[in-house]
Design a binder for these strands. Sequence first.
RNA 1: GCAGGGAUGGUCGAGCGGUCAAAGGCGCUAGGUUGAGGGCCUAGUGGGUGAGUCCCUUCGCGGGUUCGAAUCCCGUUCCCUGCACCA
Length: 957
Amino acid sequence: MIILTNHDIENKWQKKWAESQIFESDPDNREKIFLTVAYPYPSGAMHIGHGRTYTVPDVYARFKRMQGYNVLFPMGWHVTGAPVIGIAKRIARKDQWTLDIYKNVHKVPEEEISKFTDPEYIVKYFSSEYHQVMQRLGYSIDWRREFRTTDPHYQKFIEWQFRQLESKGFVSKGEHPVKYCPGCENPVGDHDLLEGEGVGINELTLVKFEMDGDFFVAATFRPETLFGATNLWINPDEEYIKVDMHGENWIISKKSYYNLVHQKKGINVLEDVYAPGMIGKYVKNPLTCIEHIILPASFVDPEYASGVVYSVPAHAPADYIALKDLKENEEILERYKLKEKVQKIQPINVVTLKGFGKFPAAEIIEKFGVKNQQDEKLKDATNELYKLEHAKGIMSNHIEDYKDLSVQKARDEIINYLLESDKGDLMHDFAEKPVICRCGTKAVVKILEDQWFLKYSDDKWKKLAMNCLEQENIIPPEVRANFEYYIGWLDDWACSRRTGLGTKLPWDKQWLIEPLSDSTIYMAYYAIAKYMKDIDSDKLDDSFFSDVYLNAGSYSGDIDHELFNEIKNEFDYWYPLNWRLSAKDLVGNHLSFHIFHHSAIFPEDKWPKGIVVFGMGLLEGHKMSSSKGNVILLEDAIKTHGADVVRLFLMASAEPWQDFDWREKELKGIKRRIEWFSEFVERIAEISDSSISLKSLELGEIQKSINKWLLSQVNMRIKDATEALEGFQTRKALQEALFLFKKDIDHYFHRIEHELENHEAREEISITLIYVLSNWIRLMTPFTPHTCEEMWNKIEGEGFVSCAQWPEYEPDLIDEKVLKAEEIVQGLANDIKEIKKITDRQPEKIHVYIAPNWKLKVFEIAKEVGRPDIGQIMGRSIKLNLHDDKKEIADFAKKIAREVTKTKYVGKIDEYSIIRDSLDFLSHELGAEVIVYEDPTYDPQNKSRNAMPYKPAIYIE
RNA sequence: GCAGGGAUGGUCGAGCGGUCAAAGGCGCUAGGUUGAGGGCCUAGUGGGUGAGUCCCUUCGCGGGUUCGAAUCCCGUUCCCUGCACCA
């Protein structure tokens, strides 16, 4: 048995593979397969979730290599991006949370952590750690092509890529809202946040309500409801200010200025505004020109948007309830002398919503049981109505210009109108608050100007991408629809960043190219990466890349001509990419960009051929997350379980696109299985009385039915496992190649147990088993390469099993009748057991009767008829005069009519000899003497009449 | 809301028109092995019947197509994932 946690064996083979360079792939005359998996962003240690991602391509690469393909499986490091910058800063700041994570979750030694103040060091540290772990898992990667995305050569490549896109008109300039920390003076990502992870940014419409030449600027998500405005709300307990906005005076809350100043250029504070003094004054609605009174409301959040809200009590639950509260609040009405004015205010309907009356806000408040404007449930009520009206609302009839339009349409038109006529503006705010940076500062929404975009909205480009997608294989096929959807939906993408590691935008060096954009066509870089260490990056210019990748014939530099041609041919050989593997949450961006960029830059014959999408990893049923400490590092998993067990578990517990769940308990089961597998060699050696060698294996003519059965079964497994692997179904492949395979062998051992005494039988058994073993080891090699090399070596297989030929299934060895025969024997044993159980007695003799020939004929006729048509079956049988006793034919026809459609009929089987050959087994199994009759010479209870084809009759006594 | 996926036995998870009371794992029960335990091996694991290889109920819920449906169609309820500047 091979001790799986004996890392010497793993190391031994890893070293041998590296020494013999069997995974280093260069162009030759074989057919090629080029597959890549998303290169990792090494900002932390590799955990078991990553393990699955990178094991799948390794298994496939190994499988294809054994099938005789020239397979290229490379790896690189995506060190582009901002997260490590933040990490380095936090480490420098001695942020305890960050230090804990790196010390305890990523298990970085103390002396290393101290160097983590340098972001470059972090990615270097982890990329070399990734490299080591990948080697320890036995990945068949061509390491000569390893690179980091900050290598100068790669940057040259990215610059070329972006100039290509730019020259095709797929890059444009604009502005873009981002999360921003005024404290750090930097945009912030989710990983930089203390609070507010995953919070979105919303666009709000600002509406200017005039008052004596100044403007109260109210913010809204629903400008179409302006027609239903009844008043303005401000919060009199908060501070308001007047600001200068390009010559206009705006009145907003003081706190909202904090946010807005990052979004509006040239906005300046003029003076404080005494909020209570504004209550009761009137402003003018820019759309309807109606005058609205300014009223006090406590629900108005001065930090949200502009701190000014206009009120639509018919459709906004908050407004409705605030108005109701106010009407009942004598004290406030008295304080501001509002009583009569407020009592007059009635909701105004704007939107017609099926199933609701004129004032849906009132109904929804009722439904949710909202008590006042402080009620928690108010938010839910608002959301519900917002959704409903957005989806199904129609503008009401009395609104001249917009009647009968859907709410969505009317909203867009009204926003446009407000902007064009300068009666409104736009601003952004977070969907939820608070959003707080790790430095403790409240984050804001900032508008970045001069931002560069990739124009995924471009119809020409979308069309190219669609065409590219169409010719690709997508696994699993269901996600194709997702791709189509995303390609259609993608809008312009901000592709430049202020901070992070990466490549500068070649024509605007103040910007860095964002990480999802510099990782779209890099697979093409692998093809040439192995040459790069010998070439000075200064020699790489656009003419070089255009010539290598696009055959532009443009290269004019001084790289040796022969070398240059070799590089060019190498790319030509490996491209197009056969398979791209990545996680399912990247379908909407990374993988779609990959399609976009390839279709834009490369000619059609270099477009990628296939995509495989992965599911996520769970740990004992919970989502894995480094930041929550809920991970198991691969290194630890390898240490405790061994590389092959880890690989096997990751491949066997779920298909790649399904979520897998790492469960210690199930891991143990897997381990036992593979131990059993590795012990198999010894078991065979025991049976064949000598050590095994593949050198002398010759299958020859197999006589015994049970041996033939095993060969059939094994060949079916080979066939199914191969088909499964072709489609990346690692779980199914293992189901066939390991679990069911083992089951077959268990059954086989059970069947032959009592025959091992017999010398002749034993010889054939051992030949059969060695044949099986040789196939089995090869079948398992992609999954558990170390164990398999060790076994292969032990039985004197030739060379590395990693380079051995993948077992090809032999149709000649699959004998349906043999399989059926075994089924009959097993069925018979089970039936007898059942009868024993029912009668609750241990028989001494069991008599078995085979169905007479005429029944078989009737059976065949029934099979031909194909449906339970008793009349026809009977008619045809009688006509052929199959049997003298017509009544018996009728009974039998009736009996089998339904049965026959269910039975897989493989033709006449010599049931008598099959059972006679299995008598030893049956007697042994049942603990009684078993006698089989071709003709019922002894049948005291006339049981033989029950015999059917494939189902002998039984009499026990 | 939009898009995609799903609902199967104690549980995880196959199956996607007949061979389905439904693979396989885990769990549980019994027997064997063992000094004990673990591990391993064997059998069982919806209900009934109790001399016959059968019958009944079951694959979210309700209808339908078919000789036949877990599988196809229609409706319905519930669940999960994504919706962006984050790699």
